[in-house]
Amino acid sequence: MEQVPLAHLLILSSALFFLGIYGFFTRRNMITMLMSVELILNSVNINFIAFNKYLFPNQLEGIFFTLFIIAVAAAEVSLAIAIIINLFRKFNTVDVEEVDTMKF
């Protein structure tokens, strides 16, 4: 795997990141927006692992950051799905445009 240049990994992760950005801004369904956030978090994880592997192979810091990102993502998804289910009970939809009780 030493033959793959670092630039190709960075291209992969940034393309995945901006796919997630596009999905986050075009989708109006809360569950699909959550999936786009997952894509963004995974591309960042690829970046951390690649930098740890190629630039600082004597340290483990990138691996720790990835581990903590995965843990925080798990907590975030579970909370978001609890909120989505609660909103669905109240409004009978998961569209972000129609949930506007707190809008001024």
């Binding site: 795997m1 959550l34 690649a50 691996i63 990835t66 581990l67 995965i70 799905i81």
Partner: peptide, 22 residues
């Protein structure tokens, strides 16, 4: 990339947990 532990965690948490939840 020889990161076996992270790959195992990725399959375990994302594929086994988060996707099932979604």
């Amino acid at each position: 990339m020889n990161m076996d532990f992270i790959a195992a965690l990725q399959v375990l948490i994302y594929v086994g947990g988060i996707i099932v939840l979604i």
